[in-house]
Design a protein around this nucleic acid. Sequence first.
DNA 1: CAGTGGTCTAGACCACAGT
DNA 2: CTGTGGTCTAGACCACTGA
Lengths: 259, 259
Amino acid sequence: MNINFTGDNNQIDKNSVIPVYYQLARIIERDIFEGRLKPGDAIPPENELVRRYGISRMTVRRAIAELINSGLVYTQKGKGTFVAKPQLENMVFELGDFHEEIKKRGMKPGIKLLGTKIVRADELLAKKLEIPLNTTCLYLRLLISANDEPLIFENKYMVYTKKKPILELELKDPSLANFSNLVAAHGESFPVVSKMVLHASVVTEEEAEVLGVKLNTPVFVVEQTLYDSMRRPVGWGKSVFRGDRFKFTSYVGWTKYGE
Amino acid sequence: MNINFTGDNNQIDKNSVIPVYYQLARIIERDIFEGRLKPGDAIPPENELVRRYGISRMTVRRAIAELINSGLVYTQKGKGTFVAKPQLENMVFELGDFHEEIKKRGMKPGIKLLGTKIVRADELLAKKLEIPLNTTCLYLRLLISANDEPLIFENKYMVYTKKKPILELELKDPSLANFSNLVAAHGESFPVVSKMVLHASVVTEEEAEVLGVKLNTPVFVVEQTLYDSMRRPVGWGKSVFRGDRFKFTSYVGWTKYGE
DNA sequence: CAGTGGTCTAGACCACAGT
DNA sequence: CTGTGGTCTAGACCACTGA
């Protein structure tokens, strides 16, 4: 029985548990990462790979599809498949679920409900949620922390529907941090699109007090609007991230290697 | 001759110029967007789709592969293919090439070279570029503007290689904004990975003057480190974005529809 | 066990590039 | 014209799931 790993050589082991298309993708990828194929170079034609490795064309194409998908190569009909040039000036900043991110970093996440209120929509909120002035809305204030240090101050609004009252219990649930879950459970229709706008600012007096930072501390402000399938806004919120505790990091280019 | 568009109905036209896998992907997508399939629901098994539309299984699988790729569905071996729940709490902020972005917004991009200098690495730079103290480096200062309003102030450093001197002419080239191009052309080895770190801050005195803003104006600061294929840093820079002019917007969820 | 998705083959015809 | 990638078929065997 053969137990071959992908990295051993440039041969393909058809009896391996590792799929053939995967083995081939790694072989080509290594040729690129190790400089044998440079940006602009053509990789071997599909038929050549079929002959060289004795596999079918669909399998070759699947391997190449993976490389296209990761942005490492691109194809030109009638010409060939070429190594792409990494777009190093592009930035991509991502932030996933807070709870997960914080736990991933080995810290203890915390959510404190600072209060809930039934409010009537003022001009700003009416505009954001595209509702009439004075519509009854639910207003939430949350403080999110890691290792008991406050990090994010959140203000969230959704149209209040009496038919589906919000239970105090739920508000203690960690998934409360997931505003979209709350809106899904208690709104008229569930949200399917989220728009976020990030800008740089400095804390207001109230934010400084809640977050326990000095005045003029820089912060990230994220405005989130949730939309339902009819493109109607169903929730709106503003989150203030402490600028002295948050950094967004992005890696772009040929980063497949060692993470 | 049939000229059918995808949106007409839920039938597949094999004689259309539109690929069959694409037509099928759009049909399933529409079932999801229009609520006939909800998150958690199973989509029809592959064999069912093969029978229903009279197409081969590989074609069905390609359609599903597209949906998996866009995050709309996920598969479970031995169980089925299911509609995914949109992850609305995730943020993804992207910024592409400045020149393109600014032009896309119908504005006139400008780059002003504020100066180039040969400097010796101080402690900070030596650490950032992982080079000995006092190594000779090239230092660039740039001001990037739109419609003649200054927007970004950039400071960039790379190890200075006498073998490939930098011509004044090149520095007037718009592609100069592309730091990685400059490093590629004049460094020892070309960069393949870019690390960017974004944080929120307020302007320093010098930055305020260059950007023409008041003290304490909030800014985004982006630190970029370029690495070669051996994971060695080959360039480092710090860019200051006016917080009163920059917003990053992100759409997440089922946004395939209109835009 | 039957049903599901995962992989793979050995053909086929097409549209497009460049000579 | 030849060579390239793009699409598609009609099978095959496998591993996993759940009854």
